[in-house]
């Protein structure tokens, strides 16, 4: 079966562009062999941290992975304490950063269309906005940016994309 979708648009339409502020990041560099332990560590955060905002993971090298976990800054003390305890057991390294902001945009068939993430990265590069972490999966693009950057960054994205209010 062949399905053809054609988008005729000078600007890409998105469903929404939203941001959240006051987030913390835990970066965990852990040995791949400790992946099972990491699962337990994450479950251990359920009661004290309650929810994550964004999680990404990739390989650092053939024996080491890194996970970036973004969550509500008000839970930082609890989250860090817990994670450092687990990191010791996993022989992992924890680095914590606070005062971060997260922008997310999602739109129709983003995962099947070329050039969407380029629009975002180019716009941010032109305006010197640093992307700390980006996670693009499915129809969503998540962008973690430094403190007090989400509002101007969102303004820039609103010029690059068409959002429902202006359709």
């Amino acid at each position: 079966m062949e399905t053809i979708a054609v988008y005729w648009e000078s600007k890409v339409k998105v469903y929404s562009i939203t941001h959240v502020t006051d987030l913390s990041l835990i970066n965990l560099a852990f040995p791949i062999k400790a992946t099972e332990e990491l699962g337990k560590a994450l479950m251990d955060l359920e009661d004290s941290v309650q929810r994550f905002e964004l999680v990404t993971q990739d390989y650092v090298n053939s024996t080491l992975c890194q996970m970036n976990l973004f969550y509500d800054q008000s839970k930082q003390e609890n989250a860090e304490k817990r994670m450092r305890k687990w990191a010791e057991k996993m022989q992992a390294t924890v680095t914590s950063v606070s005062h971060l902001e997260l922008i997310y945009l999602h739109g129709p068939h983003f995962q099947e269309r070329f050039g969407i993430v380029d629009i975002v990265f180019s716009a941010f590069k032109d305006d010197n906005i640093k992307i700390i972490t980006a996670g693009c999966a499915g129809t969503t693009i998540y962008l973690a940016v430094p403190d007090k950057t989400a509002v101007p960054a969102t303004r820039i994205l609103r010029q690059k994309f068409i959002i429902p209010a202006t359709v």
Partner: peptide, 24 residues
């Protein structure tokens, strides 16, 4: 975190590589 942890734990338990991951 419960679901995320269970997923990661399962990959680890069965030695299945996670080349990369992202939530949407």
């Amino acid at each position: 975190f419960q679901l995320l942890g269970q997923i990661i734990q399962t990959f680890g338990k069965f030695n299945i590589p996670i080349y990369s991951m992202s939530s949407s």
